[in-house]
């Protein structure tokens, strides 16, 4: 049976999907701005962050309104709660994208210390994770979400590898320190983005199955053993 407030839930859902799309676009544009030293794109990314902030507020308000007036239970209740948490994660993803583009200006002033290889690789994985997480939301797919959680390890490893690499640069060529540090922060940001994608994936598992898989063996990479 359809209820008159089902449309409210639809709006809520599509707002979250829209947030996910904007977040993915922000990260992609941020990386593009970094690699191509495109400052205007960087400015665009910084400016677009406001969209995410507004959407997060809107989703929160909708969620609270829905909970207070419609007394949701079961899947609906999980959807509303998960929506609030996921919107927060996506907003943080947007913040990390802004962090990245803020460093673009400083980095573009000087030639890169090395060609960007690992950072785009990390970013690609992180973006893919984010995309998949949002797909899981659309499809309510807990199996796929579990795979996303396990890929977080790859990004962590890349981040650690880049960290060591950049550390050695700083020791060998102290004049690159500031640039290396910027890159380290960017790497850290991408790693955080992957973490948020993981959080979202975990939330999607909770949405689909009602099970909380955070901090359990399930979400660890089985290969990492």
């Amino acid at each position: 049976m359809k209820r008159f407030f089902d449309t409210e839930l639809e709006t809520f859902r599509s707002n979250l999907v829209m947030m996910g799309e904007i977040a993915v676009r922000q990260v992609r544009d941020a990386m593009k701005a970094l690699i191509e030293s495109d400052l205007s794109l960087a400015d665009q990314v910084a400016a677009a962050d406001d969209e995410l902030d507004q959407l997060e507020i809107k989703i929160d308000e909708e969620a609270i309104r829905y909970m207070s007036l419609r007394s949701p239970v079961a899947t609906e209740l999980r959807l509303v709660v998960v929506g609030m948490k996921a919107s927060h994660d996506l907003e943080r993803v947007g913040d990390e994208a802004t962090n990245i583009v803020r460093r673009v200006a400083r980095l573009s002033a000087e030639p890169p210390i090395k060609p960007y290889v690992d950072l785009p690789r990390m970013a690609t994985i992180a973006i893919q994770m984010l995309r998949d997480a949002m797909d899981c939301f659309l499809q309510i797919d807990a199996e796929k979400a579990l795979l996303i959680c396990q890929r977080d390890k790859e990004v962590d490893d890349l981040n650690r590898q880049l960290y060591r690499e950049l550390s050695s640069y700083m020791i060998e060529r102290p004049e690159t320190t500031s640039r290396a540090l910027e890159l380290m922060f960017i790497s850290k940001s991408i790693e955080r983005i992957a973490d948020h994608a993981t959080n979202i994936a975990e939330e999607m598992i909770y949405l689909a199955k009602g099970e909380d898989v955070r901090h359990t063996e399930q979400t660890r990479n089985p290969d990492a053993g």
């Binding site: 507004q54 507020i57 929160d60 308000e61 609270i64 309104r65």
Partner: peptide, 14 residues
């Protein structure tokens, strides 16, 4: 709590 953290620039629709 939510209402308090809501930025004033954004119209609080609730």
């Amino acid at each position: 709590t939510l209402m308090e953290i809501t930025p004033t620039t954004f119209a609080p629709p609730i």
